[in-house]
Design a protein around this nucleic acid. Structure first.
Lengths: 306, 306
DNA sequence: AAATATCCATCTGTTTATATGATGGATATA
DNA sequence: TATATCCATCATATAAACAGATGGATATTT
């Protein structure tokens, strides 16, 4: 016994308060009355205060007793939360779901899936890291996230993956930019002379899916939002996920470039996880729900589904 | 034993996590290693999950173990809070200090005293009800507050009181109001014809110290702040505590009325409590501190001290 | 007023949980 | 290879927690 204060004492205190007497508490707890009496004496002794006024027929909670009762309820509720958590983990639910999502992935879609997930697992804490390029993978590798959603090509590795969807990419440029006025398909040679806005990142994992650097003149940006600002301002061209620029295309602020080669391509978005930490119930549900949404709600994004 | 989950198990889990091994935890807790081992097995058994990966030399927390550890820390912290609360109550401190303060009382002064109190009793929850007129007394009588600070005249009653200070009151009016331009002392007759802004309240206790209703034309307000707004807007005159209107007098927005009768008077502020629930350590400290401030810091309010 | 029914504290003996100390297998470090 | 630590397991000892009986006190009923 490390400490004289025990949860059972608090549970008994609560039973007494709820049932109104030691005897009744004993009946509720399937204990004899003397056990309740002794437990309450022990609690009063460890706390060093009187919890009950025993002058009447049934003991009445003192002011101090009422205050302690409140704390006791909190603690016992906490203990029940702990058990509930353990129970959900026992049935293969992640203790908490940490996602690393590429900024290219349609966020609206993810939010809807997470809303459903929150309904199914109300106790589950969820963390979402939105990362550019290699950032998401980094989080899977260093175990700060469990499930990655980003562009990835299967490889011999510690990481396992499954294909989720292809996100349509297209080269775009501001309407005011010279490239916008070029008639007919644009050759690689023309493109090479123009400024390309490229995403960069702190890690070296990158470049594979950054869309391919074509131009000789490069501006680099660390995040998608900033690059979009420069794109809209006409600093150069770049490949963008269609779902992100569709409103700008519709409004005429951006123009889609027609290229002579590599006319259209897709980011192969995968769900990635460490082989040692496969998705469990909550993760699986999220993946399945995302897949359903990707097939049935194409309005969110011009994506190709698995 | 009502529930197999005990605080000792959680305390042991924490010790293991903090010390790095079962043996080290045993040393820290002054238990033999086998006791720690058995306790952890019991915890794993009650929760139905593996908390440790025992493949290495020393057991390593599993993901689930880490999650449970977080919850365990919360619970044990909660248990310590409970003990601290009990300890402060054991030394005759109110379980929580509920004040019912008249809105007329200088709030700045009270805040400073409460700041000191919070320093001396960090665990003590404090509730402050700011009430107009009879409201504060009502709270003492129905036990929703323990200590009242308001205008009161000692009487044969369940309530005990001690004089704290007199708050100087003065009749005032907006500078733009006709009364402000009257030369010389104002007679009761003149006043009677003007609108008086009076505080009202839900109970019937009132009127004794509301300053006395003089005018025949009355506007009623439930709170001091609203009445002040109307006062400043020139709707009528009323008695106000000087400390509340001094800035407005200085700025010329309000004018103090000189009356022919009852030229100046004070609200006799008392500390009031039910005879059955006298102030204890925290309450006494607050009263003493307030009294010191009232004597040494007259800048806060033109008050007369006991 | 007396009888009855509850209530609580206290006591004794028993059950149950928790601690110890010894042992052996496994894994690092020298 | 030797040594030191680590852990799980077992038998045993210790210490809580419990049941059941008793008596005093307080309501409720008759």
């Amino acid at each position: 016994m490390l400490d004289r204060l025990t949860l059972d004492q608090l549970r008994t205190l609560i039973a007494v308060a709820d049932s109104g007497s030691f005897s009744a508490a004993g009946r509720a707890l399937r204990r004899v009355q003397s056990a309740v009496s002794q437990t309450m004496q022990a609690l009063e002794s460890t706390l060093g205060i009187d919890l009950f006024d025993r002058s009447g027929k049934v003991p009445a909670l003192t002011d101090a007793g009422k205050a302690i009762l409140e704390e006791a309820r909190k603690l016992v509720r906490g203990a029940e939360t702990l058990r509930a958590k353990a129970e959900s983990m026992a049935s293969d639910v992640e203790p908490d779901l940490c996602l690393a999502v590429d900024a290219m992935f349609p966020n609206l879609l993810l939010m809807e899936s997470l809303r459903v997930l929150a309904g199914a697992f109300p106790q589950l804490p969820v963390t979402v890291f939105t990362e550019a390029l290699g950032g998401a993978e980094q989080r899977i590798r260093d175990h700060s996230a469990r499930l990655g959603i980003y562009a990835w090509r299967p490889a011999q590795d510690d990481l396992a993956s499954e294909f989720l969807a292809g996100i349509a990419m297209a080269p775009v440029v501001a309407a005011a930019h010279p490239l916008a006025s070029v008639k007919g398909p644009i050759t690689r040679a023309i493109l090479e002379d123009q400024v390309q806005l490229v995403l960069t990142d702190r890690t070296q994992v990158t470049a594979r899916f950054s869309g391919g650097v074509i131009s000789h003149r490069i501006w680099r940006f660390a995040d998608l939002g900033t690059r979009l600002d420069y794109l809209l301002a006409g600093f150069g061209w770049c490949n963008m996920p269609l779902h992100l620029v569709q409103p700008h295309l519709d409004a005429g602020r951006l123009v889609r470039l027609e290229l002579t080669e590599n006319p259209s391509w897709e980011l192969p978005i995968h769900v990635v996880h460490d082989r040692a930490r496969p998705p469990q119930k909550a993760g699986r549900m999220l993946i399945d729900d995302l897949r359903v949404r990707l097939t049935t709600c194409p309005k969110h994004a011009p994506v190709r589904v698995a």
